[in-house]
Design a protein around this nucleic acid. Structure first.
Length: 231
DNA sequence: GCGACAG
DNA sequence: ATCTTGTCGC
């Protein structure tokens, strides 16, 4: 049986991929789509983790990296370009960046078990940041890793790698401020889809070596920016 | 009305 | 995100 709810989700997933959309409509879509996000724990530990980031040499350029979690080795890299169709509006970042990210994801031969995206997941005004947006469209476990807060507050975590405090807003826990490197500002982690916050934090820490950002996102950032002043 | 505001 | 060199600190 195909329920009406399945059809609504299918319809939402299509609309979330619009390359041109009115901000008011975009906000309505986020509010509806937010209800389909799942924060249930992952049952199988991820063997591969994908990382995505963008640069804007001219058009929008997305870099996708797939890393084997047991060895931390990059097993695939992809670069995709696409014209920019939306301006940057706080809270609506996904409508500007998701299209190229999805194109890069589709180009990957080795589909990762979990994906990490630059930006927030549930730590968002409508609880539907870019990590939720991409995670819902792909129906794939996703994690948001941001370098600054969009909403909510968090106490400064301790200075040891692994120390973290919740990002809260009222009685809600939206994510976690995680110390990935002593002496460096924390990273803000939140659930995108199909994973628990605890597992998201755990995976971000596992994928972090000697830098502030976890390897998936860090390598994707380097790859996306590499040829900025070249080809 | 006055700020705040992922990338 | 992007424009950009040197420089302060661990």
């Amino acid at each position: 049986m195909i329920s009406s709810k399945d059809k609504e989700l299918e319809d939402l997933i299509n609309k979330l991929q619009s390359t041109h959309i009115d901000p008011k409509e975009a906000i309505r879509l986020q509010i509806k789509a937010s209800r389909y996000i799942t924060e249930s724990p992952l049952d199988t530990p991820p063997a591969t983790v994908g990382g995505f980031d963008l640069s804007f040499p001219n058009n929008a350029r997305a870099a996708a990296i797939v890393i084997e979690s047991s060895t931390m080795e990059t097993i695939e890299e992809i670069l995709e370009d696409m014209p920019v169709t939306m301006p940057y509006i706080p809270g609506l970042l996904a409508f500007r960046e998701a299209p190229v990210i999805l194109r890069a994801y589709n180009s990957l031969k080795a589909k990762p078990d979990v994906i990490m995206i630059d930006g927030h997941g549930r730590a968002h005004p409508r609880r539907f940041g870019i990590a939720c947006h991409v995670g819902l469209i792909l129906r794939k476990p996703s994690i948001g890793v941001a370098k600054s807060l969009l909403i909510g507050n968090a106490e400064e975590p301790g200075d040891n790698k692994g120390d973290w405090n919740p990002i809260t807003l009222g009685n809600e826990v939206l994510g976690a401020a995680v110390r990935t490197k002593p002496g460096a500002k924390p990273v803000y982690v939140s659930v995108g889809n199909l994973i628990s916050l605890e597992q998201a934090v755990e995976l971000v820490l596992k994928m972090t070596t000697k830098y502030r950002l976890p390897e998936p996102t860090r390598r994707a950032h380097m790859l996306a920016s590499r040829y900025k002043n070249t080809r």
